[in-house]
Amino acid sequence: MSIWEYANPVKFLRLSERVLPALWVISFACLAIGLIWGFFFTPDDFRQGSTVKIIYLHVPSALMAINAWFMMLVASLIWLIRRHHVSALAAKAAAPVGIAMTLIALITGAVWGQPMWGTWWVWDPRLTSFLILFLFYIGYVALWSAVDDPDSAADLTSMLCIVGSVFAVLSRYAVNFWNQGLHQGASLSLDKETNVANVFYHPLLFSIAGFVCLFLALVLYRTGTEIRRRRMRALMAREVRHA
């Protein structure tokens, strides 16, 4: 029994139908625990006040925004190397979820930044990188919707994803370099991971787990939709030729 068995769309659908209900429950439970605990049962930060609590949305969504792209990269490679349709469709399904995560991260960041830095937006390297990532996501989705033939769309978007990943990493370094040239060090950015104290840390873990499960559930669900869409297309094509 190998994992590649689930590259078969029918088997994949059957598995995802069994896994999905549990995933939904776990993700909502984790999110509820993490967010309620985080919002109502943690003390205010001595420096940032209650604004710090947006961390429970901001950090997990930012994490997932990057991980979603990484998942798309892996799925694209699997499609190009092994030609499993489910893999290509999973990459396609993950992109809008990734866009949503990037948007949540950007918006919560702006909401957090306003009271902290006195401005909705600064061209901090991290913020800028996310904006660039957002552009990559949009291009990827636009290319999917522009190509008619699903197989060549999968081919082209996979190549875009791979080349885009290289350039995304390059941009990350370029942006770091560029901003130092302007701002003399990133004094505005907060190093969240090391600064977070234990009180904030445990609810954050729940919230992150919730976001991970939510992402998995959404991607599985959307992949199922894409598989059914392809199935309809295949059936209709046979029908037309039969007539």
């Binding site: 078969n8 769309p9 349709h85 699903p150 197989d151 598989i227 392809r230 199935r231 297309r233 295949a234 059936l235 094509a237 046979r238 029908e239 030729r241 039969h242």
Partner: peptide, 15 residues
């Protein structure tokens, strides 16, 4: 033919 399956077309996996 429309019924022909097993030819290896890319849509077949979905039928």
């Amino acid at each position: 033919t429309a019924e022909a399956v097993g030819l290896g077309a890319s849509d077949e996996a979905f039928l």
